[in-house]
Design a protein around this nucleic acid. Structure first.
Length: 971
DNA sequence: TCTCTGCTCAGAGGA
């Protein structure tokens, strides 16, 4: 991208976005306002103030002028500035482009050979058998080393051997280790797999081994100076190459641990030969590696570019012309796929030769969508606050707790899970910990407060009390017991690598992928067989017939369709139609027929919902996934707990993986090793209409047939990037395949809502197709056992206070009572039967805050999105919005599907609150209001913002059961 | 404008 393109008269780089953090000093962050290029050098106009005043300049030369820095970028500068003018050249200074995007050491070292591969490697996952082997050898070595059963001796010996020999190694690269008399001895292994985030150089990595070494240098002839140091040690299990890549990795680790240990040099150990190479970096080495980092980060950040308001994929760095190098590249396929529109080199042609233009464009379309979405997620990612904001600043927005001291001992909870307890040091006891924004279960990252040890460990919060915090971490921090810690909430940087890996796999030249491509991309109509008897084993017939007994007609149809399918079936589960029951029954039938089933959904809770039901019917299953996320009642079925009983041999593991016909996991859980071997007869995906296409594809690779269950009239997949959404990223696979109506079965008989509530959804979305399953459902009313006494109390009240005839509504309307809640407890409604729904999280926060009293414990306050798939007897739905101006409308309420979900959660009574005039501006809500009006369900037309729909008894009984204490009315 | 679930992760090796 040429810099000049960006310098339009309406230059946007004159304004720094709000989320940007700039600073001067050692860990500086400069905003680039302007770039001017002359032959041989480049001058940046920069500022470290958000006001962009005053400005400084930075002169780049001796190769640094090739840095792909643009106006609007953030840079970090190392070196010196002379009165506001920086110089970065051959001898001095570094420029770190986009320093808060931490790039891993391996990415950079792999970019030495092929920048394109490094960029692709950042986008897609890759891997090979050799790598798995390497991982295992690493693990064995590191464990043995830490256990010290062979480590110290062996390592010291290796070190000695290597260092004492006159030519330290058979290195091909020039060794900068000049003083041949120096002896390095490894005295202790300080750590393994140490995690380092180094925002100063924009680097991150995991250091295989952190070693204490003794260095003896010759000094004045016979006299020897002793020096102790901590250095990074990189293990290599493969062939000893002492290659530039390997050495560069060590140099990068040395650089990124500078603030921790100031190591000066690092070590490279080849386990095969046992030779140890010291790697000392020169300024040149660091300079060139940082330049590579800058180029890499530029490509990663600019993977999409705008051309006249439309985004498209940027060009990647060129393909190498070296067939030899490309032959073994794990990114071959992606490399060829990315270039679909251009001429691909002949030796890459075989990667895409089997694909048609529609296949290629499906791939690049979704790649673009994912890149757009990833960019938005990256921009919102608050991880950089961990190193850019002080504890004080971060504590203010509730995402951080500082001044923490570690209480020893640290206990081991399970393998690789360490239970830590921190207490707030007396240094800053302003307020307790409990009122912080962090809560139990939150993901956190632990760093030191000084900024030397950023990202020491990650884990989950367990308990937050007034003075102390306990959490499980991935590393034992007891050796840092003197350090003052900070603990930051970590939203996590989940890229879209699973999406893209699935997409890439869809394009693979193999049977499973060919078939899926045909169905998903080419939209080949699904096929069915005609005779059930050919699929139903004779011995299972009775069992199946028995299971079918409890089902209604459409549910039975669904079962039949699935059994007859050769490719796939789509089950539309309208609200309250018993989706979970249907899936559970389906699994039981398939199980009875001897079919294996892979049961998945996007969320852990959705998977567990079905498994909980299944458990009651004593259908065996294996649940994969992190124990922390699994429902407690399902825990006995996890791999984790099976392993606790003892799995020692490979055959036992294999037995564990193959034993159950039914396996349950999330769509993301398909990275599990079980899927390297096992295939299933059926894959069932629940909540499929909420899952994006690339993710939904994941589990489908492992089954012959699949069943998607969902309802595209309810919530779609969440897409944050507006452009990606407009280009169709929120279209689920469920929706895409729905055009084949022969594959669709509709569950339209519902057992949740009474007649009136159902009518709302019917008029809004389903055109009358939704039916009540029984008269009981249709006529069910809220049961309020003490209604009568409340009624008489109220009428008493209005008699003694005739002026307060409508006391409750007046209380609700009165400006002096801006926040109220419908309290039905007096009338006998259990708090757990009441749900409060609002579209906005902020709104819920304030509602919850007002429901602190013990009477309201059990009233669930949640977003529309969180309520999907669930119901309550009574729902209070707050529409929140009320604006007089013709301002922005906001996206959420424009979505028909969200409104549909919101109004179909209540079984017996639905109360809606909002401003009619405002809400009429949203087309979906307007349609709803028209229906309410027509059906006479609007109670208080004269008060423009109170609606109720429910059983239409007398108005009075309605009012009575609402002993109004607090209702949320935002005006 | 404001809905939020997934995920440890960076690295594991070969020319």
């Amino acid at each position: 991208m040429s810099v000049n393109d960006d310098k339009s008269p309406l230059c946007p780089y004159r304004k720094v976005p709000d989320h940007m953090i700039l600073s001067g000093g050692k860990n500086n962050r400069y905003w680039v306002l302007d770039v001017t290029e002359r032959p041989g050098h480049k001058t940046l106009t920069i500022s470290c103030h958000k006001s962009l005043h005053p400005t400084e300049t930075c002169l780049l030369k001796d190769g640094w002028e090739m840095t792909p820095v643009c106006s609007g970028d953030v840079v970090h500068l190392e070196g010196f500035s002379d009165g506001g003018s920086w110089l970065v050249d051959r001898e001095q200074g570094f420029l770190v482009l986009l320093p808060d995007s931490l790039i891993s050491g391996t990415s950079i070292s792999s970019s030495i050979r092929c920048m394109r591969r490094a960029v692709l490697g950042d986008i897609f996952d890759g891997g090979s058998k050799q790598m798995l082997n390497g991982t295992m050898v690493h693990e064995v070595f590191q464990r043995a080393a830490m256990a010290k059963d062979f480590s110290l001796e062996t390592l010291s010996k290796l070190a000695d051997q290597a260092m004492h020999s006159p030519h330290p190694s058979n290195s091909r690269a020039p060794s900068r280790h000049q003083d041949s008399g120096t002896v390095v001895t490894v005295t202790e292994l300080a750590d393994i797999e140490e995690n380092v985030w180094c925002p100063r150089f924009g680097l991150k990595g995991k250091i295989d081994v952190t070693a204490h070494v003794r260095i003896q240098r010759p000094q004045n002839g016979s006299h020897r100076a002793l020096e102790e140091r901590t250095v990074p040690l990189e293990l290599k299990t493969g062939r000893e190459s002492n290659s530039i890549e390997h050495r560069s990795q060590v140099i990068l680790y040395t650089l990124m641990s500078m603030e921790r240990y100031n190591p000066e040099a690092g070590l490279l150990l080849y386990l095969k030969t046992g030779s140890l190479h010291p790697v000392v970096a020169s300024h040149m080495d660091r300079r060139e590696l940082l330049k590579l980092r800058n180029t890499l980060v530029h490509h990663i950040h600019n993977c999409v570019e705008k051309e006249s308001e439309r985004s498209r994929l940027s060009r990647l760095p060129d393909i190498l012309t070296n067939r030899q190098t490309c032959q073994y590249c794990p990114q071959r396929r992606n490399c060829a796929l990315y270039e679909s529109e251009d001429v691909v080199r002949d030796f890459l042609q075989e990667e895409t030769g089997h694909l048609t233009p529609p296949h290629l464009s499906y791939f690049s379309h979704w790649l673009l969508l994912c890149c757009l979405e990833a960019a938005t997620m990256e921009a919102k990612n608050g991880r950089k606050r961990v190193w850019l904001q002080t504890v004080k600043e971060s504590e203010k927005n509730g995402s951080c707790v500082g001044n923490l001291q570690l209480s020893v001992p640290v206990t081991i909870q399970s393998e690789g899970v360490f239970l830590h307890r921190f207490h707030r040091s007396s240094v800053a006891p302003q307020h307790g910990l409990a009122n912080n924004g962090l809560g139990s279960g939150d993901r956190i990252v632990v760093s030191d407060q000084e900024g030397r040890l950023v990202g020491l460990a990650t884990g989950y919060l367990c308990e937050v009390s007034r003075t102390s915090i306990s959490c499980t971490l991935d590393r034992d921090l007891s050796k840092f017991s003197g350090v003052l810690f900070r603990l930051d909430g970590d939203e996590g940087v989940v890229g879209l690598s699973t999406h893209l890996t699935n997409l890439s796999r869809l394009m693979e030249n193999c049977q499973d992928s060919d078939r899926l491509r045909e169905l998903v991309v080419d939209l080949r109509p699904p096929e069915f067989i005609f005779n059930l008897s050919s699929v139903l084993p004779r011995e299972a017939k009775d069992t199946v017939a028995n299971i079918l007994k409890g089902l209604n007609k459409p549910q039975k149809q669904a079962m039949k369709k699935v059994l007859l399918s050769k490719d796939y079936t789509l089950i539309v589960g309208m609200p309250g139609t018993g989706k979970t029951t249907t899936i559970c029954t389906l699994v039981r039938i398939l199980h009875a027929c001897g079919f294996s089933v892979l049961l998945t959904s996007y969320t852990h809770s959705a998977v567990d919902n079905i498994l909980l039901k299944l458990k009651r019917f004593r259908v065996g299953f294996l649940r994969l996934g992190q124990g922390q996320k699994v429902h407690p009642d399902i825990l006995p079925y996890t791999e984790e707990s099976a392993r606790k009983k003892g799995v020692h041999a490979l055959s036992e593991l294999e037995q564990l993986y193959n034993k159950e016909l039914v396996v349950g996991t999330t769509c993301m859980g398909i990275k599990h090793p079980i899927f390297t071997r096992r295939r299933f007869d059926f894959c069932i995906v629940d909540e499929a209409s909420q899952i994006s296409q690339p993710i939904c594809l994941g589990p489908l690779f492992y089954a012959k047939r699949f069943v998607l269950v969902g309802d595209h009239q309810q919530l779609p997949p969440i897409v944050q990037n507006q452009e990606a959404r407009s280009l169709g990223m929120d279209e689920s696979l469920f929706k895409r395949l729905e055009l084949h109506s022969e594959a669709v079965v509709q569950l339209n008989v519902q057992y949740r809502m009474n007649r009136q509530i159902m009518s709302l959804s019917n008029s809004l979305m389903y055109e009358g197709r939704l039916e009540c399953g029984s008269e009981r459902t249709a006529s069910a009313l809220l049961s309020l056992p003490f209604l009568h006494s409340v009624q008489s109390e109220l009428s008493c009240y209005s008699q003694t206070h005739p002026q307060h005839d409508l006391a409750w509504i007046q209380a609700a309307l009165s400006p002096s009572n801006p926040v109220c809640f419908l309290d039905c407890s007096m009338a006998g409604c259990k708090p757990s039967d009441i749900g409060v729904i609002a579209p906005y999280r902020q709104q819920l926060k304030s509602i919850s805050a007002l429901l602190q009293s013990s009477a309201f414990i059990g009233v669930e306050v949640n977003t529309v999105d969180r309520y999907q798939g669930r119901d309550k007897s009574l729902i209070v739905l707050s529409f929140v919005r009320s604006t007089v101006e013709e301002g922005n409308l906001g996206e959420l309420l424009k979505d028909w599907r969200r409104l549909n979900v919101a109004i179909t959660r209540a079984k017996h009574k639905l109360l809606m609150v909002g401003s009619a005039t405002t809400l009429r501006r949203y087309a979906p809500v307007e349609k709803l209001l028209n229906h309410l009006q027509q059906e006479n369900m609007i109670s208080f037309k004269n008060t423009p913002w109170f609606y109720h729909s429910a059983f239409l008894n007398s108005q009075f009984s309605h009012k009575t059961n609402l002993q109004l204490k607090h209702i949320e009315l935002t005006l």
